[in-house]
Design a protein around this nucleic acid. Structure first.
Lengths: 111, 111
DNA sequence: CGGGATCCCTTGCGATACTG
DNA sequence: CAGTATCGCAAGGGATCCCG
């Protein structure tokens, strides 16, 4: 019902958000992604791209040139998703110090 | 730097969001959580609770009664996080049909 | 350049059993 | 009631090599 589980499964994979962020600035090539989202492995980059494409968040465009050139760009849906993710990023920035402090306290008590 | 990775590691674990949601209505007991976030295993419930507590998102209060009674409640920080998560949930609701359609198209092309 | 295929290790997580 | 301990499988993901 809540579909939140599905969302986490989709976007919660290790590299998805990083790829979405890297593609936010317009179409980006495979090799550029590989550097932008480093240190992602070639394999995981491919797999994650496929999943994002499958979910309709990314569009893959292959130019039949030589050497091959492939670009990935966000769909409108993905831009909306980014707006929502921005709220999360904002929270993370505002509270990262608090979280770090909480961890220190917790680890100190249990050490 | 971006700390987004950390955030995903923290909140992106399989049950975290469900627990946060279940605890949003005020202090909740271990057993209640177990039912609310079903079908979570006892082990994962404990582990996830510990992690959320460690990050300062949950407060654990144990009452030295018999039988024991333990309650978990959200911290102010966690309530703010929920507001951000609501944006994500909203996106998921608005686009779940689009995602499903995209998958059908993708799977159809590749089958 | 942009992948696919294979190998293998690590991690997450469920099942089960035991405890204060 | 609210955990902890141990086992074991399956998925996630890195390394490497190969290909159009």
């Amino acid at each position: 019902m809540c579909s939140f589980e599905d969302l986490v499964d989709r976007v919660g994979s290790k590299w998805s958000v990083g790829i979405l962020l890297a593609a936010a600035g317009g179409p980006i090539r495979f090799g550029e992604l590989e550097r932008a989202v480093a240190p992602i492995s070639r394999r995981m980059l491919t797999l994650t791209l496929r999943n994002l494409e499958r979910d309709g968040l990314l569009v893959r465009t292959a130019y039949p040139t030589v050497p091959p050139r492939v670009e990935y760009s966000l769909t409108p849906m993905a831009f909306e998703l980014q707006a929502a993710l921005a709220a999360l990023a904002s929270w993370a920035r505002r509270h990262q110090a608090d979280v770090a402090a909480a961890r220190l306290r917790y680890d100190g008590r249990t050490a």
